[in-house]
Amino acid sequence: MLPESSLLESRTMRESLSARTEVLDKVKVLEVLPDGLHVTTDGVADYFKVTRQAVENLVVRHREELESNGLHVLRGSDLREFETFNLNVSNGAPGSYPQRRRRLTLWPRRAVLNVAMLLRDSEVARRVRTYLLDAEETHRARERYGRERASEPWEWYEPGFDDLRPLLVRTHRMVSAINVELCAVRTDVRRLDERMDRFETRMDRLETRMTGVETRVDGLAAHIRRGGRR
């Protein structure tokens, strides 16, 4: 398997796996906001079981990378509209006068996965990385399998169908042999048709000659009968 350091140290590697957000829910359910798309900073901290400060420190160090994966901050009218449909406006103590947020950082799933590939001191993040690297290794193995069999018949079968491949190859060869035999049979039939045509032509000619002979015989018989009467 690829080493865990390949994710922690290589942004190129992280970018190549940034779309595999399904691994988040396979390790632990990610609680998203009512919009079904985003998580707050507190939600990210809760998912990875770290402090909010640890997440904010990560943003300071890797903001450009995280923003490339969708991290963004809402302010002003955009924030008020988002709060109306997705959040409680008040962030004060129970019973206190509602206080509006001045800004809100939103994390799409890609950005949360990005945190998993950067956060060193989190057991949940380690599990996500392990799952991610296992999935990548499986994907690469399948690609190698496909390249190795690209020149063989039936290469479109998945590895799980290996037990069928010998039978399919034999069937393919048998069908090819039958096609060759059918071509030979078609050639023989065509030749036989030609011979039958020639035979029918000869029979027509023979029938014509026989008709002529019969006519002559009838004429001769009539002549003999007339002569016998004289």
Rank of each mutant, 00 (worst) to 15 (best):
T201K: 07
D188G: 03
L119K: 05
S151K: 09
V128C: 03
M117L: 02
V112F: 02
E123N: 07
L132R: 01
D134A: 02
L132D: 02
G228Q: 14
E207G: 07
R103I: 08
A221S: 11
G228D: 15
T138H: 11
V185W: 11
L220R: 11
M210D: 07
M210P: 02
Q99P: 00
M203G: 01
R142M: 15
F199V: 13
L167Y: 07
M210A: 13
T187L: 06
D134N: 09
R102A: 15
E158K: 06
A135C: 07
W107M: 03
A222H: 05
V217F: 12
R126F: 01
P108I: 05
Q99V: 12
R149Y: 14
E152Q: 01
A177N: 12
D134W: 15
M203T: 01
T187N: 10
P94V: 12
A93V: 12
L167K: 03
R142K: 10
L192H: 01
L164H: 08
R126H: 01
H172V: 01
S176Y: 06
R127E: 13
E152H: 00
R165H: 04
V175H: 09
L168H: 04
R216P: 00
T171L: 13
D204A: 10
R165P: 01
R198A: 09
D134S: 04
R205V: 11
P153Y: 09
R209K: 15
L182S: 08
R103F: 15
T208D: 10
D204V: 05
G219N: 13
R205A: 07
C183I: 11
E214I: 07
